[in-house]
Design a binder for these strands. Sequence first.
DNA 1: GCAATTGATGTAATAACATTACATTTACAT
DNA 2: ATGTAAATGTAATGTTATTACATCAATTGC
Lengths: 131, 131
Amino acid sequence: MTTQQLTKNQGLVFDVLSHSDSPLSAYTILDKLRDNGFRAPLQVYRALDKLLEFGLVHRLESINAFVACAHPHEGCHNHGITAFTICETCGQVTEFHDHVIEDRLKAFAKGRNFKTGKTTIEIRGTCAGCA
Amino acid sequence: MTTQQLTKNQGLVFDVLSHSDSPLSAYTILDKLRDNGFRAPLQVYRALDKLLEFGLVHRLESINAFVACAHPHEGCHNHGITAFTICETCGQVTEFHDHVIEDRLKAFAKGRNFKTGKTTIEIRGTCAGCA
DNA sequence: GCAATTGATGTAATAACATTACATTTACAT
DNA sequence: ATGTAAATGTAATGTTATTACATCAATTGC
């Protein structure tokens, strides 16, 4: 999945997120794209929905914000569950993947006959630089 | 931590959550407490803040809702990181604790000199009964 | 007792986040 | 070229959460 096959709006939103050094809310993205013709939240949310579907973007549930995937070329769906550290001071987000955690969560779900959809793992705190 | 030392509003909110079989939004709680004199969201949010602080209630970040702790007597803070399965069909929430997952997350944070605040682990999907 | 402080409450207004509904346009396979 | 699916534009509304300010209640120190 490259950036080429994205539509205009999807490309614009992905671009904004890619160049940001911290997560952005949908409304912040909207403001950044006003000059590109964006007028309404839905334009952002629709693009985000697609980008999430493509695995190019992640939604951080605990802060209602979005970040570009750390390795968009492969599409993050190939990497299983994604976990994040989120610095509450500077906004730095680090994405990581841990197969042990994933296995434990899968095992728990399986044991309960729970059919897993999307899993959220987010650690909020303070990064090394801000400590 | 028993229910005794809660204030009136805290007690009312905790009661509503305790008797619910699924997570509730702050505004749903508000509606359920109108007859008890609740008039504004802030009355709910303030009570929830305290209940969260006491470890009597959990916030489910991925669905903007709240549940009573599964073992409120001990205070959930004693149990380390709390993880949840959340059935998107019936709302059933199961709370669990996994020390292996916790250790992995702590190790990752430590390795990055990331100072951990609150950690969110939520699996959304379909429970056995709804499958 | 009674001021002083702190924690809890009441109320209104507003901010922040997200979706529904409906009309129109674009992309593209047949 | 035309039918269909996907994407877009726009307005309105719904949902979640906070700010600001006034009042009340409980506790402490004197």
